[in-house]
Design a protein around this nucleic acid. Structure first.
Lengths: 241, 241
DNA sequence: CAGGCGCTGATGTATATACAAGTATAGGCA
DNA sequence: TGCCTATACTTGTATATACATCAGCGCCTG
């Protein structure tokens, strides 16, 4: 073996089919929603078995390049919007990974009655008891995030007994309830006076407001409002297509 | 929810194997780096063929739950960090999909000399010519995004000839250069006077500043600074784990 | 004793086959 | 005309089999 000098292509055969399909799409020959040859057609065309052709289609589907539907066929997916993915890490882990000291200041930790909005997000009825916490996360003593959180008591029963000075509610929830879903929104706000004071910035300073609703298979777990001082914090992301 | 009591189980057989493995991991019976039974063992244990057991292992590997290596075996992966993903869509497509009118106001479209920072991001030398554009994207006539962009002339030669009143630079670049990578950061700023005027907001109002560097296989394509009025715009994301 | 050889068992690739399930269409019957 | 069914084609699941490739181990030879 290894008699093929250059371009020794130990690549599997399904890779050739994937490359072929991607080439057609990138050349523009196959626009979005164009129908891709069926598994049997590709198998015959490339002289492979149906299972091998199927693997190429399956992997491209998982990559978001194709869309398949049983009985109909395989189609080119919409050109993906110049989208990017943004990863938001746990704030305490982030601070620790920089080699800085993490400190959580607990401003409030209580049981309260759910407002209509909170009840809706957590799948409860308005007025039901929910856990309500407000804390400030600090990096080397400098406030980096103000966090207000409403948590479903059924899914995190001993929330109020936690010590959030060293571990975050987010980490606790992640530990007791495997999360399966998260809805996040990010916007910019001018800091209100009280939050500004707690973040040790001036009222009106620009802040990132991240709102996140997390849920597990058992239902809504938690609703969080996270405020970051704009001058001290930035969300980052690296994405490869 | 819960419309399926227990009877209808049209679930494929590999799903049972996946569930079994996940259960062992979540129970703590199989810690990180624990060795998972081999394909043949699982096949015998569940009374399925090796290919079916293999599928369960393959899918869990793709999901990041397991790690496999040829000749060694399959192992439980390290617990995944509590990360989440945020998708950012193209602004014109976003506006159109709401059924609103998109309008692009071109404030500047020129060739300029690259600053040191721009040159670094695009893989050029400082002072090289780059395309420089500033525009404001409007939704039904209301400014929604201020965009300043530096583009590599080698990869988008007829950038200056484009009509960005109806199609965005982002869409043009996506068309002529398949992007493979993007680095994005999001922060909050107080609007400067000039940008505030162009966005028709007050100076000092909180804004989202999104900075994005995109690159293709051929190198750095473009560097963009996107400013959104905080009161009018929000980034959203839905993530499933 | 060192090095190599082959064995075993693991994952990776590929094939042929079978049946299940969803979709669209052509044709027939009332 | 309107509805229903049979059929063909598609993707989805599952199996049995074969060979390739890689890592680890032990034995055996030089």
């Amino acid at each position: 073996m290894s008699q093929l000098p250059a371009s020794t292509t130990p690549q599997p055969r399904y890779a050739a089919i994937k490359a072929f399909i991607c080439a057609q799409i990138e050349n523009g020959d196959w626009p979005a929603n164009h129908r891709v040859p069926s598994e049997n057609q590709l198998a015959e065309q490339f002289g492979v078995s149906r299972m091998t052709a199927r693997r190429a289609l399956t992997e491209l589907t998982e990559a978001g390049v194709l869309i398949r539907s049983q009985g109909l066929g395989t189609f080119v997916a919409e050109a993906r919007p110049s989208g990017s993915l943004l990863e938001v890490r746990d704030i305490a882990e982030e601070i620790s990974s920089r080699g800085h000291d993490y400190e959580g200041r607990v401003l409030l930790l209580e049981q309260a009655a759910a407002s209509e909005q909170v009840a809706l997000a957590l799948g409860l009825s308005a007025g039901s008891p929910v856990f309500h916490s407000i804390l400030v996360h600090c990096d080397n003593g400098v406030p980096l995030q103000w966090e207000e959180r409403f948590t479903n008591p059924a899914l995190a029963p001993d929330y109020l007994q936690q010590d959030f000075r060293s571990s975050t509610p987010s980490a606790y929830l992640h530990r007791v309830q495997p999360l399966t879903e998260a809805d996040t929104s990010v916007e910019a706000i001018n800091a209100e006076a009280d939050i500004a004071a707690q973040l040790e910035i001036s009222a009106g300073d620009a802040c990132l407001l991240v709102q996140r609703r997390t849920s597990s298979g058992s239902g809504g777990v938690s609703l969080a409002r996270l405020v970051h001082p704009g001058k001290r914090y930035r969300l980052g992301a690296q994405l490869k297509f």
